[in-house]
Design a protein around this nucleic acid. Structure first.
Lengths: 174, 174
DNA sequence: GGCAGGTTGTTGACAGCGCAACGAGTGTCG
DNA sequence: CGACACTCGTTGCGCTGTCAACAACCTGCC
């Protein structure tokens, strides 16, 4: 268990000044503000949300510029229903097209249209400028490398420990 | 414009293998998966969302365990209408109480009830364990320090450059 | 005092996402 | 072949959040 960690945990609520929680809170704040800013800029200049941009980007990098819905969902960090609706919107604006999958009649594929690619190219300038300005510039090379290491470590650690499907830890609520 | 930054930017779409974008994408993935996991655990074991937990925590740390709505909104990274609804829910479950502000008749305050404090105490065990397990344990002390530095640098940088309300303040970036 | 202009919290309308359920299709094993 | 369990994408529903509009209130200036 992760309870004996050397942190004195008072009977009260976690102190806001725990040094290690500082990193945690900074991480949360940075992410929230950064994403909001990038989304704002993308929306203002190109009428795209970050999720939409990301979907277009994933399609652009895929072979033949087409991807199965479920694969796209996974890459954009969305549920399957979420990707259905996202593709609905993109299709509505003519940026992607739906087509049936030849090898699997259940499957649908989303493919990037040339209009979508143009839109993506334009938007990527804005987005990359934003990432450069707000994420890369204010961080030293060493720190950025550390961030990447840390992020990958976190992702790794999450993969290992399964979520709480085990109900044996619940009943203690009383 | 921020176009001359030393990044060679091809006429096509950003390559997925840019070393610095690697950190960016890892950052996004780590955050998404981590938050989802922590939210799941908190929800499963205590029926609280992360936002609700955060609100309770902010109240617990405030003097007199009460906070103006707008201040609370700011700390929980929510809009004013968002905080109104969040407090609605928490009030409905008896974890916070609303009261009028004595010095400002427009204002409302949210205060933590003892039930809310109990709930927070219980939940904080789960939450802190999660943060420990998924955020702190898989990251070295040095890297965590770097993450904190990076995050603060990002927040700082965001504060400086105003969003695109004024286009005239951008050109001096070069 | 009295009024213009900003702030505060709430509400209505709406968007986006996840979950559960569904129809359609696949693959496997007897 | 037929039965079964599974996967795929879509849809209905609910939750949660934002934005715009609003009434109530505060502040500063005349």
């Amino acid at each position: 268990m992760a309870t004996e960690l050397g942190v004195a945990r008072p009977a009260t609520v976690p102190a806001p000044d725990d040094a290690r929680l500082g990193a945690w809170r900074a991480f949360l704040r940075a992410h929230a503000r950064l994403l909001r800013r990038l989304d704002e800029e993308l929306q203002a200049e190109h009428g795209l949300s970050l999720a939409e941009y990301d979907a277009l980007l994933q399609l652009a990098h895929a072979p033949e510029r087409r991807l199965r819905m479920s694969v796209l969902a996974e890459r954009v960090l969305l549920s399957r229903s979420g990707i259905t609706r996202l593709v609905d919107r993109l299709e509505g604006s003519g940026m992607v097209a739906r087509s049936a999958c030849v090898t699997d009649a259940r499957g649908a594929e989303a493919s990037l249209t040339t209009a979508g690619l143009d839109r993506l190219r334009a938007a990527s300038r804005t987005h990359l400028d934003g990432v450069e300005r707000y994420f890369i510039a204010p961080v030293s090379d060493d720190d950025r490398a550390a961030v990447e290491r840390a992020a990958n470590g976190i992702i790794d650690g999450l993969g290992r420990g399964a979520p709480a499907l085990d109900a044996s830890c619940l009943p203690e609520g009383g």
